[in-house]
Design a protein around this nucleic acid. Structure first.
Length: 647
RNA sequence: GCUGCUGUAGCUCAGAGGUAGAGCACUCCCUUGGUAAGGGAGAGGUCGAGAGUUCAAUUCUCUCCAGCAGCACCA
């Protein structure tokens, strides 16, 4: 049986190379290295590609064999195999269920099914149990490459229309791979583990079931998606579940209720009723932003909330977004709409007078409240609402000034985020979309301005090809919060289009009327949403200067009431937001209540403090107290109440 | 908007085909207490809205509204 077997050279991570027969599998390679490695092996990386142990290697390559110690690969395999195991379990329990796709996602996987009956939360337990049985069977995983037509016929025979559609959409030159987990098989790109027993049976959990559209298309079939999380070990699963509990504790909707910051009503879905404490945070943000913008020559304006349809037609909103606009009916035969954006109003202000190049750049800002009829399913606490306040501004400049203005906005954004404790900022750069207006030269200019801005500032960014707005490219600023969650907040967009639509001009040095370039920018984005993010980031315990309530002065005995009032007045005069608690309750009760509502400082006063003109200071989260002179405490708290830009 | 689930006192929740209960909060009384719940009494609900089935509906059915999870959307 001797034949000319072509030899290939495989290079290992330690730099050593060995010769093997062409077509050797990583499984065989692992076995040639050591028995124990062969047992522990889960997959390989071949020439940089994650490689199934069963796939043949046909040419010279670099090869690394992975074990469960290689977290990245192990997670991917475990999650991917669990997706298959779950689909198998579901089909074993409910054979009429049709399978679709089941990808790996952050922390786990999901699988979409088509089945008449909805899955219930109890079903998840059943499925989990069945999955554990499958894992315990240690069923072998094997793979084959199939002919396209055979695969299509196979799935047609099995009445799996989604798989047929999937195969039909895979490019003809791509090999079709089938995977078996025991007797159950699925079309799959791989790679996978060697047998189901390699999946840690105690490190996964089915989390939820929810609807999801087939192929993400809202015009198509709604499927049932089951989500699972999985890790390489039980401890990691536990840590993840603990993290979820921590995140739930930070939920701004829950904290908003507990801290009495705001509420919602059925009569105004998606619109906030701000309570005094919440409104104080909101106003503190606006005051802060106003100062920061004043310092760099922004001018603040205010424009109407309700404007005629004609304006929205000019801006393009009427045709593009009418379904998402609040329309106002009146008795004067005119169509009005509540503003969904501030820019058209700012165009009116820009256009109101003749502009000279000497004035540019003009930076028009507005804390405008915009109204958008968001889909009901999109509403989510403060994070997605139907009326919200933007820290919006539009910068009108000459094309020559474009880059410099972008750089200034970028600098301002970063400096502001820093003041709020967000140092980990990532930027998304979205470039020209397929469907766009304007010449390529203009797009080159706009994109260059944004890209150069980021590169000059040494910033971390990701390019999203084709994701820009139809009128121009944009930057989106993403903050990472205290527990690693990302929030998209600020945006900076270049726009050559709107000035043209509105016929905006400026008189150039040579006396010509030219069109300005316009930048749209928002730093907090939505004040409502940013407030929500702050609440979640700090778990309600906002820094003193931002805290919804700063100080409660609590009496220990009613004999101290007069002094309590004196302390409150003193603090207020010093710019500290203080309130008195002179209720007929014990100090324990008061401390508990205000601590639960996350008041950062409680000042307790009893007979001794009255006598000595002191206060007993208790900071949120600290058990020990300290008695200090009122004058010292006032100075200290006044300093802490000062916003960072004024320190 | 779509799929599923949920809607009972201000909050957190229990409950059953025969028109409702707990704890906390609230009001009043006693208590003046030194850093995370002092004691007692009281008041509070068209059981999300509408329709249907039934002798009888808050409970069962349907429609609508709102919320939750996910999907889709996000100028």
């Amino acid at each position: 049986m001797a034949k000319d077997q072509q030899q290939i050279s495989l290079t290992f991570p330690d730099g050593n190379a060995r010769a093997y027969d062409a077509g050797v599998t990583p499984a065989a390679v692992a076995e040639s290295i050591s028995k124990s490695l062969s047992k522990k092996a889960i997959s390989a990386t071949v020439n940089g590609q994650h490689w199934d142990l069963q796939w043949p290697i046909e040419g010279d390559a670099t090869v690394a064999i992975h074990t469960m110690q290689d977290e990245a690969q192990a997670n991917e395999l475990v999650r991917h195999d669990l997706a298959h195991i779950m689909a198998r379990a579901v089909q074993e329990i409910w054979p009429d269920t049709k399978v679709t796709i089941g990808p790996v996602i952050e922390h786990g996987w999901y699988y979409d099914f088509d089945r008449e009956e909805p899955f219930t939360p109890e079903d998840l337990g059943l499925i989990e149990k069945k999955m554990k049985e499958i894992i315990n069977k240690r069923d072998p995983v094997r793979t084959e490459v199939w002919d396209r037509d055979v695969a299509i016929q196979f799935y047609k025979d099995r009445n799996e229309p989604y798989k047929v559609e999937l195969i039909e959409s895979i490019p003809g030159d791509e090999p079709l791979r089938m995977y078996w987990h025991g007797d159950w098989q699925d079309l799959c790109r791989g790679p996978h583990l060697q047998h189901t027993g390699q999946v840690p049976g105690d490190a996964f959990k089915l989390m939820s079931v929810a609807g999801a559209y087939w192929r993400g298309d809202s015009d198509r079939q709604m499927l049932q998606r089951i989500y699972g999380v999985a890790f390489t070990g039980k401890e990691k699963l536990k840590a993840h579940l603990t993290m979820l509990e921590e995140a739930a504790k930070r939920d701004h909707r829950k904290l908003g209720r507990e801290m009495d910051l705001f509420h919602f009503e059925e009569v105004a879905p998606g619109s906030v009723f701000w309570h005094p404490a919440g409104w104080r945070v909101f106003q503190t943000l606006i005051d802060y932003m106003r100062r920061r913008q004043d310092a760099v020559d922004y001018i603040e304006v205010n424009t109407p909330d309700i404007m005629d349809r004609a304006l929205w037609e000019t801006s393009g909103h009427w045709f593009n977004y009418m379904d998402n606009m609040f329309l106002a009916q009146t008795h004067d035969d005119r169509d009005y709409a509540l503003k969904p954006m501030n820019c058209p109003g700012h165009m009116m202000i820009y256009n109101h007078t003749l502009r000279s190049y000497r004035e540019l750049p003009i930076k028009i800002s507005e804390f405008g409240k915009v109204h958008r009829y968001e889909p009901s399913g999109a509403l989510h606490g403060l994070m997605r609402v139907r009326s919200f306040t933007q820290d919006d501004a539009h910068i009108y400049c000459t094309p020559d000034q474009l880059f410099e203005e972008c750089a200034k906005v970028n600098k301002l954004i970063l400096s502001i985020y820093k003041d709020f404790g967000f140092e980990d900022v990532h930027v998304k750069l979205s470039t020209r979309p397929e469907n766009r207006i304007g010449s390529d030269e203009v797009w080159d200019l706009s994109e260059d301005a944004l890209r150069t801005t980021l590169e000059d500032a040494n910033m971390n960014y990701t390019i999203f090809e084709g994701e820009g707005a139809f009128y121009g490219p944009k930057l989106e600023y993403v903050l990472r919060d205290a527990i690693g969650r990302d929030w998209q907040c600020g945006t900076l967009q270049v726009d050559y289009n709107l000035p043209e639509r509105f016929g905006s001009t400026y008189v150039s040095a040579s006396g010509e009327k030219l069109a300005p370039v316009m930048l749209h920018r928002a730093l907090f984005g939505s004040l409502e949403r940013f407030t929500g993010i702050l609440i979640e980031n700090w778990e309600g315990k906002l820094p003193f200067w931002l805290a919804p309530r700063q100080v409660v002065v609590a009496s220990i005995t009613s004999e101290a009431d007069g002094y309590v009032q004196e302390v409150v007045d003193t603090l207020r005069k010093a710019g500290v937001q203080a309130e008195a608690d002179m209720r007929n309750e014990k100090i324990n009760y008061k401390v508990r209540e205000h601590s639960l509502s996350k008041v950062p400082v409680i000042l307790a006063v009893g007979a001794r403090e009255v006598e000595e003109k002191t206060v007993s200071v208790r900071r949120l989260g600290q058990k020990q107290t300290s008695v200090q002179a009122l004058t010292d405490v006032t100075a200290q708290l006044a300093a802490e109440a000062t916003p960072p830009d004024l320190r």
